[in-house]
């Protein structure tokens, strides 16, 4: 996951559009060191960034690439499952659109951390993985 600049208005616009499309009016995005809180009110998104107290390692989890409804219907989801880098593990549903959640590296997916059909936020942990050496 790359660092995002939450002060960039273009990014906030894009996020707000995605949120509107998903039919939600606010979201919290957690990065390793801070949390963004984005609230859509009318046309102007309002964002607050709050630094974290501690650090959590993201090495052994797959996180949500954006906000959406966690969808396990599109991709077969029997676990544990051995995957290559780039394989699709699940989807996030935004309206009728499905955004893939892909493995960032070759690994074994051991556990699904989210209940199907629930709303997840950007960066939410979705799967536990064991990276292949």
């Amino acid at each position: 996951m790359s660092k995002l600049d939450f002060t960039d208005p273009a990014l906030l616009d894009a996020l707000a559009a995605a949120l509107t499309a998903a039919g939600v009016d606010g979201i919290e995005i957690e990065q390793s060191s801070r949390t963004l809180r984005l609230v859509v009110e009318g046309k102007t998104p309002r964002a607050t960034v709050r630094p974290h107290a501690g650090h959590a390692s993201a090495a052994d989890i797959i996180t949500a690439p954006m906000a959406g409804i966690f969808d396990l219907d599109t991709i077969p989801s029997e676990l544990p499952r051995t995957v290559r880098a780039g394989d699709i593990l699940a989807c996030l549903r935004i309206g009728p659109v499905l955004v893939p959640v892909r493995a960032s590296k070759a690994c074994t997916v051991t556990r699904c951390l989210v209940v199907a059909d629930t709303l997840v936020g950007f960066g939410d942990p979705l799967f536990d993985i064991e990276a292949h050496p």
Binding site: A10, L11, L15, A21, I94
Partner: peptide
């Protein structure tokens, strides 16, 4: 919208 967001 999603395309724009992902690109951003």
């Amino acid at each position: 919208q999603v395309g724009r967001a992902l690109k951003a």
